[in-house]
Amino acid sequence: MWIGVWLAALGLALGIALGLNLPFTVPQAYAKYMSVAVLAAMDSVFGGIRAAMEEHYDNRIFITGFFSNALLAAGLAFIGERLGIDLYLAAVVAFGVRLFQNLAIIRRHLLKK
């Protein structure tokens, strides 16, 4: 379990270091979609950690969930923009709520131990 957490932290640090050094930024017009995608991805990761703690982690669900959530969130925001509806707000709210829920559950699992 703790190896997984350390690996996750290591992966995150590596990814941030990599991202900070990549010579590339998202075009301004797509920054909004990227932000929603990041939120969805964070939710997925915390969901994965929670699932691991609840001992019903499924690798396939985790990986597909990560990508599909991110893409779906960005796609929803994109379509919402085209339709004149701020759908990305819905994504922010939904993923935000889930994120906090996941965090709360992870906290509880950690405290229970």
Binding site: G11, G15, G19, T25, V38, M42, F66
Partner: peptide
């Protein structure tokens, strides 16, 4: 989880810089 968090890290950093 390590790979996914790495991808997440890249996304976070890019978003941060953007």
């Amino acid at each position: 989880i390590a790979i996914i968090t790495m991808i997440l890290g890249v996304m976070l950093a890019i978003q941060f810089r953007t």
